[in-house]
Design a binder for these strands. Sequence first.
DNA 1: CTTATTTGCGATAAAATTATCGGAAATAGG
DNA 2: CCTATTTCCGATAATTTTATCGCAAATAAG
Lengths: 144, 144
Amino acid sequence: MFSKACEYGIKAMIYVATQSLKGDRVKIGDIVEKVGSPEAFTAKILSDLVKNGLIESLKGPYGGFAIQPAKMESIKVIQIVSVIDGDSIFRGCGLGLAECNALEPCPMHSKFVKIRSELKKALETTSLLELANGIKTGKTILIR
Amino acid sequence: MFSKACEYGIKAMIYVATQSLKGDRVKIGDIVEKVGSPEAFTAKILSDLVKNGLIESLKGPYGGFAIQPAKMESIKVIQIVSVIDGDSIFRGCGLGLAECNALEPCPMHSKFVKIRSELKKALETTSLLELANGIKTGKTILIR
DNA sequence: CTTATTTGCGATAAAATTATCGGAAATAGG
DNA sequence: CCTATTTCCGATAATTTTATCGCAAATAAG
């Protein structure tokens, strides 16, 4: 469904959020330990998310990554996915046609329309805060 | 969503089905022209589908690929997908956890459960005959 | 200003996916 | 049998994705 990069990015964002809720900045080594992802690769992805304003970073000692708690409610999963994987999951054709719409649909089009819109809706309505709270309360996990 | 290999495989199966409904065998060159996929790669995929009994092939002159019309109703898209991409779309965790279930869920688990089961259901209930008929009647297209 | 720390970034490498090539095996027809 | 045709199959190549490495840039603290 998502690329590895996207999976890592979402999980990293969630972990940083849980620590930012406690007022802690986190460094990359910390993140990858808690998320189970490769360090340099994850750093690249986070760098991308920084550029897109979804997370902030600070270099040097006492530096690391953080997300302002006030923003966590408004940051939705779809934004993270869009930055890393683009919008092909929602917009692209399930069978790879260059163009595919109700007028000239691929054979699976009608079957996919509903599923895609539900996926999009789920990602649009799920906030980072909600996901971070799941981890905080121990209801969900980031690694296994 | 699906791999390129899977997209090609599904479209090739649909095209072969439309021709088999007319009693025609089709060769690989014919298929890739109608489906817009690379020849040798598509041949590999079809070979895989032959091994798994979803389509039959015949070598030599007047040979090619065919699907018995009587089987088209019982061949569901999920079988094609399973042969080519496996079942990770239905069974795997959306965030890549090795194990992820209602007891120890990833943060997105509850959001994905419904979408995945609907996707699975759609693929389970969509038959090759149905898709081939869409092409036959001109309601859907395979290439663009 | 110097040092230690940490992200940023470009180059590179490894692995997976997608794609091509050449020839072997099968088969229909003359 | 011989030939033409077509799938099958192993090797290889190209591309994309995933991952690593080394060093530059920034920054906090003494």
